[in-house]
Structures are given as structure tokens and as C-alpha cells.
Design a protein around this nucleic acid. Structure first.
Lengths: 146, 146
DNA sequence: GTCTATGCAAAGGCTTTGCAACCTA
DNA sequence: TAGGTTGCAAAGCCTTTGCATAGAC
């Protein structure tokens, strides 16, 4: 069963309907591995057979997050970006300050976890999760503007 | 010379004026060590002698950032928070998901820097800076809701 | 046929901008 | 006095909400 089909089955099981908008959006998320903003996703879908409304994209992404199928994050700009929930581990991000691309990095968090423990104890704070982003320039942009 | 006076002197030197709004806002930033949102700062200043306008607070914080006196950051909510530029090092943050407080943690970034190098090489990405936030519950909130 | 999901319009929250009046140096 | 600053109003951007209609099952 394809990823799309298994997500659809999961939703149907919960009593949700697989409409063309929903299907299109899920497909786009599967295809697009990097976190993407609602507006950008909508722009992309304008080329599709039956482009869903901007509002629908917002609502659908929020819905998929509630269902645990997608996750969202915000970087230093105020924009919320969504990506499929990875099967395991959690992601950190490489943000190119030049072309604004956001790229997930899957990596072991063990170093950060050690840090978490230390910081938590020192500050009387119970750490539940963390977010780590690296800002800089991606390979392509370094080539363009050396 | 107090911190406030030295900031004022620095700005005057650059041809800027020390108005009552500016002075009030700088004083508030000095007093308030944790990152604070424009709206919250404005609310606080309503109690002061001559409360500056909301718009002025926004403009002033942006100005102070341009002058290198303040720095801003955004967490997972879309709100921009400002704090004075620390003399050395850079800060990471403890964000309480219960009371929404944001607390800076000064810590050595050496571990993260090592990570930076590794990640950068592996992904063909030139890392220039990073942001690390810890989400969880502060001591007070853990006590309240155990 | 039922009830979820969609589209449209409008509103909401945070932040920025235009412009005339104000006030510091 | 001159020019940086302020306040007011209005607009901008991203996102959410209300409500009637459309469409999946």
C-alpha cells in the first residue's frame, strides 16, 4: 500500500472523508519532503487539476497536524511550515538565509539530550523537547554568491 | 556611567535623539532581562509617566535592533521578542509551555559548534549561526501542576 | 440522505507605513 | 530652526472563523 493510500485508509477509519482537496494536499506533502508554508503549498497546487482554496489549504494542514499526520514548525520568520510526521526521530533544520529554503536534517540528538539534562538541572526547568536550527547558506547559494 | 547613560551617549553620538519614549523603552529593556514582545512592553509602559504609543514601541524596538543595542527572536508563536544585546556569547532559551515565559540561558556553545561543523560538511551547507530552544515547564509551573 | 469538508467573505492578531505635528539638540 | 521622532489612522501579511453549499460515503 502506498503512503498516500495508507494515510487515506487511516483517516477513513476515523470517519473522515477523502475529498479531492484532501487527497491533493496529502499527495503534495508526500512529494514535498521539506517543510512548506500554506501559501507556498497553495501556489504549487494552483497548477493541479482542481486547485483547492487557500482557506482549505490552511484548514487541511491544521487538520493533518491534529491527526498526527503532519507536523508544523516556525522559524525566525512568522510563517508556519508543515511537513509529514517522520516515522522516527525528530528533525532539525538547515535554513538558507539567502534563498530561504528550509531543509530538514535527520540526526542523532544524543548530544543535545545530554545538554538538555544539564541545562534543566541548572535552571530548575523540566525540559520536554527542543528545537535546533542552523542558519547559513546552502551549497547552491554559496556557489552563486561566493 | 550607567548602562542607560552609555546607551544614550552612544546613540547621541550617532546623531539620534533621546526622547522620553526612547528613554522609557531603553530603561524597560534594561530592567527586563528576559525577551519581551512589543505588545507586552507597551502594556508595561502604560503604567509609566508618559506612556509611548504602541506604534512607537514597535518602531523603537526595531530601531534599537538596527543599532545593535537590542536583539530579537521568534519562538514557535509568531511573536517577535526583544532583549538587550548581551555583552558576550549568545543565548539559548528555556520556553515554558505552561506559563509562556521565555528565559535566556547563557551557556557555552562548544558542543553545538562541533555539531555545526559536522552537519555543515555532511549537507554541503555553510552554517553561520544557530538557534536552540528548550521547551518544557519552569520550576514554578511544575509545582503548580505536578 | 447525512454530515463532513469546501468556498467565499469577513474578521482577527501582529506588525508596518504614510503623513502631519511635535520636540530634541 | 532643522530634522529626527511621535501619534494617529490606515494598510499589510498571515491565519482563522462564520455560514451556506457542495460532495463523500
Amino acid at each position: 500500500m502506498s503512503l498516500h493510500a495508507s494515510i487515506a485508509a487511516h483517516l477513513r477509519e476515523k470517519g473522515h472523508r477523502i475529498t479531492s482537496a484532501r487527497s491533493t494536499i496529502i499527495a503534495a506533502l508526500i512529494q514535498n519532503k521539506n517543510p512548506i508554508a500554506a501559501q507556498d503549498l497553495h501556489r504549487k497546487l494552483l497548477k493541479s487539476a482542481k486547485p483547492p482554496n487557500m482557506v482549505t489549504v490552511y484548514r487541511e494542514l491544521k487538520f493533518l497536524e491534529e491527526q498526527g499526520i503532519a507536523q508544523s514548525l516556525r522559524l525566525q520568520d512568522a510563517v508556519r511550515r508543515y511537513h509529514l510526521t517522520p516515522h522516527k526521530g525528530h528533525r532539525h533544520h538547515l535554513v538558507c538565509t539567502s534563498c530561504k529554503s528550509v531543509q530538514p536534517v535527520v540526526m542523532a540528538c544524543s548530544d543535545v539530550h545530554t545538554l538538555e539534562q544539564r541545562i534543566g538541572r541548572k535552571n530548575n526547568f523540566t525540559v520536554r523537547s527542543h528545537a535546533l536550527e542552523f542558519y547559513g547558506e546552502c551549497g547552491a547559494c554559496v556557489k552563486k554568491h561566493p
